Simulated assay, not measured.
Amino acid sequence: MKTLIIYTYPNHKSLNFAFLQEVMKGCNENPYISEVQVLDLYEEKFDPILQFNEHKRRRDMYRDPKLAKYRDQLTWADKIVFVYPIWWGRPPAMLLGYIDQLFAANFAYRDKKGLLPEGLLKGKSVVCVSTMKGPTKYPLLWLNNAHKILMRKALLNFVGIKKVKFFEFGNMESKKGGQHKKLDKIYQYFSKVAY
């Protein structure tokens, strides 16, 4: 299983970076995972801003040469892991800008007759590892699970990815947030996951 980890946090001395390290450590010890690539969107200086004009059209994003490397990574991967904080109930703008540009028509999905398009990323699986300052149940109780609905239904199911797992860790700025247990949970999961 080839695994692409997409990390979205600007600080490498952070809890999010510690989660990235545990994902990588678990993947590297997992006999089912043959190869791992890490895409650090901030280190990469990924430009999340969409720009369209008479020379650059939205319908042509799927063949933009500046995005070819990232499309190749997504095509290569069997499993995609997103590691990011939840800010204002959703992933950071940097990650959303990546999604806007990479999950484009004629690469991630294709319009067809009927209500829903054909997902072109079928057969892949996704794990979302996210942290937040607020309580773990905050997205469920106050936001009607907006984060999970956005990621699972509005994005991943739309492009054909049906197997999606979430780790939403709350109270991450609290001294009683159980950070070490949560880091170990991530390591344990990635060291054993078979698909």
Rank of each mutant, 00 (worst) to 15 (best):
I5P: 01
I6V: 10
Y7E: 05
Y7R: 04
T8D: 06
T8I: 03
H12W: 06
H12P: 06
K13T: 10
K13N: 14
L15K: 14
N16F: 04
N16D: 15
F17V: 03
F17H: 09
F19D: 05
L20D: 12
Q21G: 09
Q21M: 13
Q21R: 11
M24C: 10
G26P: 11
G26A: 13
C27H: 04
N28W: 08
N28T: 11
N28Y: 07
N28K: 15
N30E: 13
P31W: 08
P31R: 10
Y32A: 09
Y32L: 08
I33H: 04
S34Y: 01
S34I: 07
S34F: 01
V36W: 02
Q37N: 11
Q37T: 14
Y42P: 09
E43G: 15
E44K: 09
K45D: 14
F46T: 10
F46N: 06
D47I: 13
D47C: 13
D47K: 14
I49Y: 14
I49N: 11
I49K: 12
I49G: 06
L50G: 10
F52G: 11
N53M: 08
E54D: 15
E54S: 13
K56M: 06
K56N: 05
R57D: 04
R58V: 14
R59Q: 12
R59F: 04
D60C: 07
M61E: 11
Y62S: 07
Y62G: 02
R63G: 04
D64S: 08
P65Q: 12
L67Y: 04
A68V: 10
K69F: 05
K69T: 13
K69N: 09
R71W: 02
R71Q: 02
Q73W: 08
Q73K: 12
L74N: 03
D78A: 06
K79M: 01
K79F: 02
I80M: 03
V81W: 01
P85V: 06
P85C: 12
W88K: 09
G89K: 05
G89H: 07
G89C: 12
G89L: 03
R90T: 15
R90H: 12
R90Y: 06
P91I: 09
P91Q: 14
P91Y: 12
P91N: 11
P91G: 07
P91H: 11
P92L: 13
M94T: 10
M94Q: 15
L95G: 10
G97S: 14
Y98M: 09
Y98P: 09
Y98W: 15
I99S: 01
D100K: 08
Q101A: 10
L102K: 09
F103W: 15
A104Y: 04
A104I: 07
A104S: 15
A105Q: 04
A105D: 02
A105S: 06
N106W: 03
A108R: 01
R110C: 00
D111I: 02
K112T: 00
G114T: 00
L115M: 11
L115H: 02
E118C: 00
G119C: 01
G119Q: 03
G119M: 02
L120E: 00
K122G: 02
K124F: 00
K124I: 01
C128I: 01
S130P: 07
T131N: 10
M132V: 06
K133H: 09
G134V: 05
P135L: 13
T136R: 14
T136L: 07
